[in-house]
Design a protein around this nucleic acid. Structure first.
Length: 940
RNA sequence: GCCCGGGUGGUGGAACUGGUAUACACGCACGACUUAAAAUCGUGUCUCUUAUGGGAUGCGGGUUCGAUUCCCGCCCCGGGCACCA
């Protein structure tokens, strides 16, 4: 046996793969296909770091396993090469971005090949290749034709450092996603993509995918679907109406004012009020971060002399403008319900606007629930919380016949004011005469069984706080005295547990702080809807005020233009006569012209605008004077459809032949970073659906399954970055320990989907593992039948097979290690046994396993050998270890033949000396036997 | 604030459907081999305790014969969203 020489072995096989191209695939209808995809990288100047290959290796393992299972596997790679770093470099050095891109992708390719990823290199693509972006432009023209790409003057997010407009998705905390500079607002004509037209389907169709649940949730949150009502509010003395959107039409009887966003069109047309104008101007100056920071205090101004009519109550209510209402969501106007919405509540408190409670929580007493068959009695009641502010004590009633402690409680008589009722009850029950109403603590519907009356009670309770002015009191009637004693209780003892009321939480919180009750509940003060459940009446109440039930989305249309050089030129011209005219398809690709200066202009135009020769052209329509569009497409354009091009990367007639698309799509398994969930993943699903609607792709979803990987962090847990200087280069690792070790280590280091810090010390373990696999070849020899080792072998096949499917690569490797440990204990192992361990390891460590495969004098490649199958019968162990517990504590262990009858196992256990020690002299209450696992003896 | 994850030895992390917590690996200690070291191999390694035994899966409760796993209430860390009416 030669010593394990990773350099020699890896060079040898990489050379073979380079010439024989075993991973080059052709469409073959006789074979089942499998399309594995990873996110193609942006080839940066820094080259690959060890974090890059983690997803490639993970997917490579799956791809290799699929090949061994007989699938025709497409596992492609390419370069997402448009983007700012190459352009910024060009600005600095004057070197054309294409040259840098070429250099960088050459480096990436070389590095990836060193790792032995089984990509089909014959299908390599590059988004900056005119042969590729011809089709990106072509797809754009289809969007344009259908009116889904359009130009719009709008305020955009402008990065003053990069001199570039940003999509909402590219703004993080009000800062540029790339450089972190605070984003400004600018008015500009922009190309837009109407992704919102697809919002409903982008949300709904997630149901049919096998995306990880967290990915679906994140996409759904981003799309932000919500259902609600659009309701018109008439303006007094005017025919005009203000349309509002609300998800809580059930609270409409509680609307005490309405609010328009400062940008609301209705406001624009009638600003003769100078104060209002000043306010609006001030808001316009604010940046988006200041504007949308939920923590900042809300501001607003009343439109004096303007009144709206609450369509439910017909009451006159004021109209306000406020910055907390967003112009571009819903209708840009809201109905304010300060009693039941936190924002309205804050605003109402600040500006002294009234609140009206119309929803009360439904409190069901679970300890004392309604009894079936008993009469249900509904009544209004008060709970009077009387406080002595001098010593901070509360007046409680200690009931004599019941174990209750309550505040002063009592009924509200027909037509009686609850506050008056409370004062009356306090006098009758306690005698105190001089009390002061402090505040209402809110209302509730309390449902319980009133044992002393034998009825099921539904009480609408008014919780009211009073302060005691002085101790003066009347004599209390003797009947009342017999029912309860008065106890002044310190505040600390007034708790949820000490008091019987359902309403305690409400009372205790509201004594300290008022708040808006935003939950569902029972309607009150809502005319015909009183006593109904809020959740049931939303649609009915909407109809009653002439409103419409609608669906709204948070998702906004996609800002599609960039004022930069290094992107796909948008293939349209602006004609003096005809307006926007698309280039004829045969003129595609519209190539990027050569330019001297790559820097964008301060006016916000792309460097393309300065190339007169290129810009000035003829209208393809009327042949008159026209100017080319100088905006380019965003980075996300090329990556929105690249997976389609892989199916037919060289096609000159179409973006991909229908036959190829039909064979390969959808992508069976797409792995990528969580950071692309709301951007790339959503955009590409949108493009795909659009192409599907045109009949150009066969499926409505591009990806069947989507998983994600965790980032690899630098040693110590920080993000790897060139500027910090903590980047680990895979080339260096490979030189020392080899690609196979790197691969095994990256998969073994922790769960694939979680971020993890690089740890150079730990690599040694993976290297040792491969060396031991290598040395194991010396043990091949004649063996006698060993059932135990066969069982382990088949268990390992099962575990590795299943773990790979779940991307649990770390436990797959650990189970191979366990098998190796077993083999190592043996004098000899069989060639067949050795072969299986090699096959199981082949997807993880493709070079060394290929070498060992030939050492075993096998023909062909281990990577095309069939994936090992486990034998169900071999999984069964003859003997099982059963642990014995006494009262749940482990006290002993025994080995029995598998499936020994419970009674027998029980008898054996009870007879064991270490068990007897615990059970002697004790009564055995129960013995629980779980077959082949555990016995629990329960003693007194 | 809301929505997702997560919290287990000195470290990275295992644990089926509620059934022997700490697999596998790193590190460390000791031993073998060696003139010596490295490498390799072997043994040990949650913790307290002389021991019988006790205690440990972020904290506090609960359900259960039995809880890392289920339920309730908190704390901490990571990610996403954030005035979306």
């Amino acid at each position: 046996m030669n010593p394990y020489d990773h350099t020699k072995i890896e060079k040898k096989w990489q050379k073979v793969w380079e010439s024989k191209k075993p991973n080059k695939v052709k469409e073959d209808k006789k074979k089942k296909k499998f399309y594995a995809l990873i996110e193609f990288p942006y080839p940066s100047g820094a080259g690959l770091h060890v974090g890059h290959p983690r997803p490639y290796i993970g997917m490579d393992i799956i791809a290799r396993k699929r090949r061994m299972e007989g699938y025709n596997v497409l596992y492609p790679i390419g370069w997402d090469a448009f983007g700012l770093p190459a352009e910024n470099y060009a600005i600095k050095t004057g070197i054309h971005p294409a040259i840098i891109t070429k250099q960088n992708s050459d480096t990436f390719r070389r590095q990836i090949k060193l790792i032995g990823i089984s990509f089909d290199w014959s299908r390599e693509i590059n988004t900056t290749d005119p042969k590729y972006y011809k089709w990106t432009q072509w797809i754009f023209l289809q969007f344009l034709k259908k009116g889904l790409a359009y130009k719009k003057k709008m305020t955009i997010n402008w990065c003053p450092k990069d001199l570039i407009g940003l999509a909402n998705e590219e703004v993080v905390n009000g800062c540029c996603e790339r450089c972190g500079t605070k984003v400004e607002k600018r008015e500009k004509e922009q190309w837009m993509m109407a992704i919102t037209k697809y919002a409903e389907r982008l949300d709904k169709d997630l149901d049919d995918t096998e995306f990880l649940e967290k990915i679906k949730i994140q996409q759904r949150n981003w799309i932000g679907k919500s259902e609600g009502a659009e309701i018109d509010f008439e303006l007094e003395g005017s025919k005009e109406k203000i349309k509002i959107f609300t998800t809580r039409p059930d609270t409409i009887y509680g609307v005490t004012y309405i609010v328009l966003s400062p940008e609301h069109p209705w406001v624009k047309n009638r600003t003769n009020d100078s104060e209002v104008n000043v306010y609006i101007a001030k808001i316009k100056e604010k940046t988006d971060i200041e504007r949308t920071d939920a923590k900042s205090e809300k501001t607003g101004i009343e439109l004096k002399g303007v009144w709206a009519i609450n369509p439910a109550t017909k009451e006159k209510i004021p109209v306000w403008i406020a910055d907390y209402v967003l112009a571009d969501y819903g209708t840009g106007a809201v109905m304010a319900v300060p009693a039941h919405d936190e924002r309205d509540f804050d605003f109402a408190v600040k500006y002294g606007l009234p609140r009206k409670e119309v929803i009360i929580p439904r409190l069901i007493d679970h300890k004392n629930p309604h009894q079936p068959g008993k009469e249900v009695v509904y009544r209004h009641a008060i709970i009077a919380v009387v406080r002595n502010p001098k010593n901070n004590t509360y007046l409680c009633l200690k009931w004599k016949k019941q174990t209750w402690i309550t505040f002063v409680i009592g009924g509200v008589e027909n037509g009686e004011d609850p506050g008056a009722a409370a004062i009356r009850e306090i006098r009758e029950k306690t005698g105190y005469k001089n009390i002061k109403l402090v505040k209402m603590l809110g209302e509730a519907q309390s449902e319980f069984y009133a044992a002393h009356k034998g009825v099921n009670r539904i009480a609408h309770t008014y919780n009211i706080l009073f302060d005691l002015i002085d101790e003066e009191k009347d004599v209390v009637a003797s009947e009342e005295q017999e029912i309860h004693d008065l106890v002044w209780t310190p505040a600390a003892s007034i708790t949820k547990d000490n008091m019987i009321h359902n309403e305690m939480e409400l009372i205790l919180t509201r004594i300290k702080n008022d708040y808006a009750y935003t939950g569902e509940g029972i309607l009150t003060r809502s005319g015909p809807f009183d006593r109904k459940e809020s959740i049931d009446v939303k649609k009915e109440i909407t109809e009653s005020v002439g409103g419409k039930w609608v669906t709204k989305f948070k998702l906004r249309d996609w800002v599609f233009s960039r004022q930069r050089y290094w992107g796909e030129p948008i293939p349209v011209v602006h004609c003096e006569k005809c307006g926007i005219v698309p280039l004829p398809e045969k003129e595609l690709p519209l190539k990027l012209p050569k330019v001297k200066n790559y820097a964008p202009s301060q006016t916000g135009e792309s460097p393309l605008a300065s190339i007169e020769k290129w810009v000035n052209t003829k209208c393809p329509n009327c042949k008159g004077k026209a100017r080319r569009e100088t905006d380019t497409m965003p980075n996300w354009a090329g990556s929105s459809w690249y997976y389609l091009r892989y199916t037919d990367p060289k096609n000159k007639k179409t973006f991909a032949d229908k036959k190829n698309l039909e064979y390969w799509t959808p992508v069976d398994w797409y792995n990528g970073g969580m950071e692309h969930t709301t951007l790339h993943l959503l955009y590409s699903r949108f493009w795909h659906k659009f192409l599907f609607d045109l009949g150009l792709v066969p499926t409505s979803e591009p990806y069947k399954k989507r998983t994600s990987h965790g980032l690899i962090l630098a040693e110590g847990g920080a993000k790897m970055s060139k500027s910090v200087g903590n980047v680990v280069n895979p080339d260096d690792v490979i030189k020392v320990v080899g690609a196979d070790t790197l691969r095994v280590y990256e998969m073994f280091m922790g769960p694939f989907d979680q971020p993890i810090a690089w740890d150079t010390n730990n690599i040694a373990g993976s290297r040792r593992f491969i060396e031991r696999i290598w040395k194991l070849q010396e043990k091949i020899g004649k063996v006698s039948v060993n059932n135990k080792i066969e069982t382990t072998l088949h268990k390992t096949i099962k575990k590795v097979s299943e773990d790979i499917e779940e991307m649990r690569f770390n436990t797959a490797i650990s189970s191979i290690m366990i098998l190796l440990n077993e083999f190592d204990k043996e004098e000899t192992i069989s060639k067949e046994q050795y072969q299986i361990i090699i096959q199981l390891l082949a997807p993880f460590a493709p070079h060394v396993t290929e070498e060992l495969w030939t050492v075993l004098q096998n023909k062909g490649s281990v990577h095309s050998a069939p994936w090992p199958q486990f034998d169900q019968n071999r999984l069964i162990e003859n003997n099982v270890s059963i642990s014995i517990q006494v009262n749940g504590k482990l006290r002993g262990n025994m080995t029995t033949p598998k499936d020994t009858p419970d009674k027998e196992v029980q008898k054996m256990a009870l007879n064991m000396s270490e068990i007897k020690k615990w059970t002697d002299g004790k009564v055995i209450k129960n013995v629980i036997v779980i077959k082949n696992r555990i016995i629990n003896i329960v003693i007194e």
